[in-house]
C-alpha cells in the first residue's frame, strides 16, 4: 500500500527487465504438443445482460497448461467471457446465455454440477487485489476452511507452498499473522494469486491482474504467470498489449462481443490475419 515497502525490490529492476525478455522468447517457443488443446471449450456461446447481447456466438478452445490472453477494447466482452467460465456472472440479475462452455467435456451449466465445486476447480484473480480483512495466513487457507479442512499441518503446508508458488514466501514468512492490508499493492496481488491456487485448481482466470500495479510489481506477476502455467491453464484478460505478448501463448482478440481472431500470440502480434486485429495491436484504435 505504501510506496516505501517497494523500495527494496526497486534495486532489482534492471534484472527483472532482462528476465522478462527471456520470458517472451520462451513463450514464443511454446507448442501445443502433449497437452489437451481442448481443456476449456466455448461452443456457440452467446450471453445477454437482460435484453442486451454482449457475447455473440463465440467458439474457441483453451489449451491445457498454456496462457491464453483475451484482448480487445473496453466493453468488448472479454471480462464477461472470463467471468462466465466460473459462473461469477450468476450474481448479476437478468442474465441469460445460449450455447455452452465445457471443461474437460462437461458443461458448466449442468444442473447436477454444484457451482461451488466448479469454482473450487477454477481459481480467479481480480483486477483490483481483494485480500480479505484477515491475516495473510487466513487469506491463503480460506478456501480450505470453507471446505471444512481445518487440519493445522495441512493448512501450514498449503500456506507455504502457495506463497512459494506465488513468489511471496520470502517476503512474508515472518509475518503471516499480520493483516493482509499491511502488504504493498504488488504483494497483495501476489497474495491473491497464492490464495487462488491454495486449493490447487486446474484453471486460473486473471482479470487484468496488473492494471493497478506499478511496472516492477507487474514484472513480478508476469514472471509468476510464466511459472504457474506449468501447472495451470491460465486465461488472462489484459489491456496491455506488451503484457499479452510477453506472457501468453495464445491470444484472442474480441471486438463488440465477437471473436475477431484467435491464434498463436506471435502470429496475432506479428502478422494478424484480420485488419481490425492489426489496427488494435498496433495501437491505432481501442
Amino acid at each position: 500500500m505504501t510506496a516505501n515497502r517497494d523500495t527494496p525490490t526497486r534495486a532489482a529492476a534492471p534484472n527483472d527487465v532482462q528476465q522478462r525478455r527471456v520470458a517472451v522468447s520462451r513463450s514464443a517457443a511454446a507448442t501445443l504438443e502433449g497437452v489437451n488443446a481442448q481443456h476449456i471449450q466455448v461452443k456457440d456461446y452467446s450471453f445477454f445482460y437482460g435484453p442486451t447481447q454482449v457475447l455473440f456466438d463465440l467458439t474457441m478452445d483453451f489449451p491445457e497448461r498454456h496462457v491464453t490472453a483475451l484482448i480487445g477494447p473496453s466493453g468488448c466482452g472479454k471480462s464477461t467471457l472470463l467471468r462466465n467460465i466460473n459462473r461469477m456472472n450468476d450474481l448479476i440479475d437478468g442474465i441469460s446465455h445460449q450455447g455452452d462452455i465445457q471443461i474437460d467435456g462437461s458443461s458448466i451449466y449442468d444442473p447436477y454440477l454444484e457451482v461451488i465445486s466448479l469454482r473450487k476447480r477454477i481459481g480467479m484473480v481480480f483486477q483490483k487485489s481483494n485480500p480479505f480483512p484477515k491475516s495473510i495466513y487466513e487469506n491463503i487457507v480460506y478456501s480450505l476452511r470453507v471446505a471444512g479442512r481445518n487440519k493445522k499441518s495441512e493448512l501450514d503446508e498449503t500456506v507455504e507452498t502457495s506463497l512459494k508458488a506465488a513468489a511471496l514466501w520470502d517476503e512474508v514468512k515472518d509475518r503471516l499473522q499480520e493483516s493482509a492490508f499491511s502488504l504493498s499493492g504488488g504483494q497483495m496481488q501476489r497474495l491473491c494469486i497464492a490464495r487462488a491456487i491454495a486449493n490447487r485448481p486446474e484453471i486460473l482466470l486473471m482479470d487484468e491482474p496488473c492494471s493497478a500495479l506499478d511496472p516492477i510489481a507487474t514484472g513480478k506477476i508476469e514472471d509468476l504467470i510464466h511459472d504457474l502455467k506449468k501447472e495451470y491453464t491460465i486465461i488472462i484478460v489484459t489491456h496491455n498489449m506488451q503484457q499479452a505478448a510477453r506472457v501468453s501463448d495464445k491470444t484472442a482478440f474480441l471486438y463488440m462481443g465477437q471473436l475477431i481472431e484467435y491464434d498463436e500470440t506471435e502470429k496475432i502480434f506479428m502478422k494478424p490475419s484480420e485488419a481490425q486485429t492489426e489496427a488494435y495491436v498496433s495501437g491505432r484504435f481501442g
Partner: peptide, 15 residues
C-alpha cells in the same frame, strides 16, 4: 461491503 470481497470469496468456492 465491497463487492470485491464477496466475489473473492465466491470465486474461492465458498457458498
Amino acid at each position: 461491503v465491497p463487492d470485491a470481497f464477496r466475489s473473492g470469496s465466491l470465486a474461492l468456492g465458498a457458498s
